[in-house]
């Protein structure tokens, strides 16, 4: 997806604490350019190298127990993240 300069109104991305704990200095909320979920995760990875591996597997897909919501809808890697989107990256119920 191509974003014009006029469209650069960032998405607000919330990260789960179990993720930010793995990347010292990573905040719980970050503003990122709109685009796709994949581009958003690439942007996270460029700031905190290795973060993509924690969020995505090699299929490639968002990991099975990680959920990405864009404006309230569960989103896959190719989903659009519009300007000013509300994005939540959440850890699913898992473990024991």
């Amino acid at each position: 997806m191509t974003i014009s300069r006029d469209d650069f109104r960032p998405a607000l991305v919330r990260l789960p604490s179990a993720l930010t704990a793995l990347f010292p200095g990573a905040p719980r909320v970050v503003e990122l350019p709109p685009g796709s979920v994949n581009e958003l995760i690439e942007a996270l990875d460029s700031r905190w190298p290795g973060m993509r591996d924690r969020l995505c597997d090699s299929s490639p897909a968002v990991r099975r127990h990680v959920n990405v919501f864009v404006n309230g809808a569960r989103a896959k890697l190719d989903a659009t993240v519009p300007p000013e989107a509300d994005v939540y990256i959440l850890t699913a119920i898992s473990g024991g």
């Binding site: 179990a18 993720l19 793995l22 290795g50 591996d53 924690r54 969020l55 597997d57 090699s58 299929s59 490639p60 990991r63 127990h65 990680v66 850890t91 699913a92 898992s94 473990g95």
Partner: peptide
């Protein structure tokens, strides 16, 4: 379960750790 495989490393006896799975992946 959330974040997949990783190799953790500490060079100070366990006080601080880093982690990586760079390259630990099969083909798409």
């Amino acid at each position: 379960e959330w974040f997949g495989p990783a190799v953790w490393k500490s060079t100070d006896g366990g006080a601080r750790w880093t982690h990586s799975s760079h390259g630990i992946a099969y083909a798409a």
